[in-house]
Nucleic acid binder design. Sequence first.
DNA 1: TTTATTCTTAAGCTAAAATTAAGAATATAA
DNA 2: TTATATTCTTAATTTTAGCTTAAGAATAAA
Lengths: 220, 220
Amino acid sequence: MHILIVEDELGIVQFLQQGLEEEGYQISTAADGAQGYELSQNEPFDLILLDWMLPKMTGIEVCKAIREKDKITPIIFLTAKDTVQETIEGLKAGANDYIKKPFSFEELVERIKIHFRNQQQDEILTLGSIEINLAQYLVLVNEEEVSLTHREFELLCYLVKNKGKVCTRNQIIEDVWDIHFEYDTGVIDVFMNAIRKKLNLKIEQDYIKTVRGVGYIAND
Amino acid sequence: MHILIVEDELGIVQFLQQGLEEEGYQISTAADGAQGYELSQNEPFDLILLDWMLPKMTGIEVCKAIREKDKITPIIFLTAKDTVQETIEGLKAGANDYIKKPFSFEELVERIKIHFRNQQQDEILTLGSIEINLAQYLVLVNEEEVSLTHREFELLCYLVKNKGKVCTRNQIIEDVWDIHFEYDTGVIDVFMNAIRKKLNLKIEQDYIKTVRGVGYIAND
DNA sequence: TTTATTCTTAAGCTAAAATTAAGAATATAA
DNA sequence: TTATATTCTTAATTTTAGCTTAAGAATAAA
């Protein structure tokens, strides 16, 4: 999650940046309104923290400018302007929240999380640098999309879901192929081969190992 | 827009109800936590205003209970509990905002509006260069109007609303056809075929892909 | 080295999806 | 209401993706 901080007081910027990075967010900063608006147009942010009093463009102006095109990205005002009228002006400009200085950092974090709650509900499995998006039936290897067939996808998911445990050929045939009797063709091998070929992992990325005589195991 | 007020102090309830009705909202009220939770389960509200100190169930308990099933409906705490710790507790329970008494009615209205902003704007859906106007049942492809039948329109909307996620055949039959048992004729295929034919997209505009063995996915 | 296991490849087969057409159901107009 | 047009559904046909098999190559174990 990538957050843009638009604030001119260096002390506050550093305080926010450090705290939010510790929370696991990626942070970009802008020291004046114009630069903040500029940045917001060049790359997509997941949330924007905005001061009111800024050089070149005020926070209100930045907020309105962003909202002309983008109605979605959450914007939170973070400002010493604490009258009701100012709060209302900020919210009317299109902000999603308005927090008055001095504020509690912990409360800020909770208020930030509110906006991410609704977005993060897609289930994602990972195996090393492999990312599996279950909702999209999508596999990313080192950020690159790899297209697997349905069976390949299911087999990979099965191994990843059982990360750290050896999956025997029998278990795989049972659970992935749904065959409940002795079955010993080379199907699994063929599919493992196809998956490995498509994932095209480097030698040091040996996330999927074969356990000779038994089956396979995934591990990051 | 229908708002539920859960608050035991009659004076505040009347004040809120009158003010919000003047703003054009439909209001329901509950005088204790248990009744508030009960109401929230029986009919869908667009937003819930929640006091903290309530008879029978506290606001926190109501909030958590609602959030067990429903992660979406905005919940705003409106309470005299004004410490940082309490605010955080409220937000962590799943609330979307936390307003401290005494509050400005005007600010409350603005904060309520924030949550409706996002809902009301999806009158128009887009998928690449396809534009779907829900209010007019109108579809534009590269600015050109395309006339779809009702079912075709619904199916297309469903895919677009779930943009980025694979829609399985079962989900489609459930949600678009409203059939709740195993049903495996070729209807979906026929309609997908009709939609694709009518949209008449170029090869590079492959916004609607079939996911073999699973279903379909829309993506711009 | 011998033997067993796993990997790789390619060809045939199977099942899923696309297409088409025709009849049933529903909506619209006369 | 009846007549007409539109839309929906079913079913048969064609096409295509991908699953399976089997056989030889490569690799690991004995």
